[in-house]
Nucleic acid binder design. Sequence first.
DNA 1: TACTAGATTATCT
DNA 2: GATAATCTAGTAT
Length: 203
Amino acid sequence: MTFQPDFKKSLNKSFFLQDTATVARQLIGKALVKQTEGSDYLAGKIVEAEAYLSEGDLSSHSAPGLTKRNAPMFEEGGILYVYFIYGVHHCINIVTEPAGTGAAVLIRALEPLAGIEIMKKNRETDDIQKLCKGPGNVAKAFNFNLNDNRSSLTSEGLFIQDIGEDAGHSEISVTPRIGIVKSAHLPLRFYLENSPFVSGKKK
DNA sequence: TACTAGATTATCT
DNA sequence: GATAATCTAGTAT
């Protein structure tokens, strides 16, 4: 099964303006595609994502209101929100809903589809199952950093592609989110059942 | 297999 | 000055 990047199959902006939990669930099974400077393609199927809401969600970066860091979350859906955490890792989010809302979806894990050699180099490991396991690793494999903040997800250099493998609802599991303390009980983490690429699992 | 510590900085109070 | 939507290596069990 070879993956072919195809911008014509990318999701358009209206997709990202929907309810955040809906977007998070529907992103499972879609492909994140990024074109590198050398015009190579990096791509991975989204197998794990978490929704961070604008209201009633104390662990969302948007909860304290608009600040310099979370400003991209308050813009119109369809762009990237990148943050740097623990002085070590970058994490990438897909901003959702109309401008002024303050919500996003954290991409937690991908199944590598294209540009795997480049990802191995970025991650300094040959273990494909670990290349994009966990939000910090996803960003590292794709070489995302703060400069990618606000990047459009509806451009030829970066987009979400429908690869016709949509998981049925029965294949998607919903659980509480990982690594947070506040609002930790909310069931806003979505992942593809039985995928070996999902994070937070034991062997 | 399970738990713990350490890395290290942009951003916020 | 404190904190954080994490990851890995290392030590203990």
